[in-house]
Write a protein that binds this DNA or RNA. Structure first.
Length: 345
DNA sequence: CGCTTTTGACCGGCGC
DNA sequence: GCGCCGGTCAAAAGCG
């Protein structure tokens, strides 16, 4: 859920208490260890406790407000989503009847239909904003486009460096794919392979894999849609059956967080760069995280690598505003629950 | 035998 | 209307 575009819920949960702690004079802290008068010590502790209590109350009330806001936003989101689903399901039968017997090709013009930004903002004007002269066929095509747009809400482009001599277009990404076509395109002499997710029958995800025209050792995979099932196996971060030949993986998610994994370094762990970009076109901002580490067969199994991966995930999560919002809601919820049970703060 | 891959044919959008 | 092009279908072949 992406309501961060509506309410700025990004919280730095660690910053509030720091000023309070800084208020405590250094000498008093040191007095804990030097054994000065007990009375003075008690005074300092009392003041500190009072400040902390006050700060805690303030943070708690802030969290409560934020939780309420989040609840309202969630309710609105769910209501709008249900409305849209209901509308689409009622239109579904009509549209399918009209297209029966012939393969209908999608219209790629997105200008008059929702873009991901509008979808994320639940802008229902897209559905209901047609002019009154619109014919029923317009409604059908609009509905169809909407459904296609819903399926194609997420387009992810993944590129990875492989051995140039390896001509296969197999990308081991943890999902089960069935190849249904291959084509040589005009702009690239390398054939493009078309895959469908074969794990779940209803899974709408498609994948196109083609070698880069500039560097044929780079395989570019384009994912359309989102899986409605978990991964079938662990991704091996590489192309082809020989995973040791894969050395670079770039992931670009259109209209969503962008994660770039640069796996080209030699056998040293190096955190090269870590940044966060905020795109004006994306409702939640395009978060870009670039890390550098190594692939290389057995190295991925080493504890340092595993530890590094965990750290990277943790850092990515803590930098993600939506994760912060969810965490803040969870913590405040727990606090409120605890307060309700104990009847005190 | 069932599933996957290959590959030529087909379809529909688009530009001229 | 015609040809080009990207995407998809489906029969045949391959494979375990």
């Amino acid at each position: 859920m992406e309501f961060t575009s509506l309410v700025d819920t990004s919280l730095d949960l660690s910053f509030r208490l720091r000023p309070v702690l800084e208020k405590v004079p250094k000498q008093e802290v040191q007095s804990d260890f030097t054994g000065l008068s007990r009375e003075r010590e008690n005074m300092g502790v009392k003041n500190e406790a009072g400040d902390l209590l006050e700060e805690l109350n303030r943070v708690s009330s802030e969290n409560k407000k934020l939780t309420e806001m989040l609840t309202v936003v969630c309710e609105n989101y769910n209501a709008l989503r249900n409305q849209m689903m209901e509308y689409m399901s009622t239109q579904n039968g009509v549209a399918e009847d009209s297209s029966a017997g012939s393969r209908k090709r999608k219209a790629e013009s997105i200008s008059n239909i929702s873009n991901p930004v509008n979808n994320n903002n639940n802008n229902m004007d897209v559905v209901h904003g047609r002019s009154s002269e619109s014919s029923s066929s317009d409604e059908e095509s609009c509905c169809k486009k909407l459904r296609e747009e819903h399926i194609k809400a997420k387009v992810t482009i993944v590129s990875m460096k492989t051995d140039a001599s390896d001509t296969s277009l197999i990308v081991k990404d943890g999902y089960q794919w069935r190849k249904y076509g291959q084509k040589v395109t005009r702009d690239n002499p390398c054939p493009r392979a078309y895959f469908r997710c074969s794990f779940a029958p209803g899974c709408p995800v498609k994948k196109k894999v083609q070698r880069s025209i500039e560097d044929q050792s780079i395989v570019v995979a384009t994912y359309e849609g989102e899986h409605n099932h978990p991964q079938t196996s662990k991704p091996e971060l590489g192309a082809s059956t020989n995973t040791s030949t894969a050395s670079r993986l770039n992931v670009t998610t259109i209209a969503g967080p962008t994660i770039t994994l640069d796996l080209t370094a030699p056998k040293t762990i190096e955190k090269r760069d870590m940044k966060m970009n905020h795109s004006t076109t994306s409702p939640i901002g395009a978060n870009s995280i670039r890390t550098t580490t190594t692939t290389g067969g057995e190295y991925q199994n080493r504890p340092e690598f595993q530890q590094f991966l965990i750290e990277q995930m943790a850092t990515s999560l803590t930098k993600d505003p939506s994760f912060k919002a969810a965490l803040a809601a969870a913590i405040s919820g727990k606090i409120l629950q605890h307060n309700n049970q104990t009847g005190r703060w």
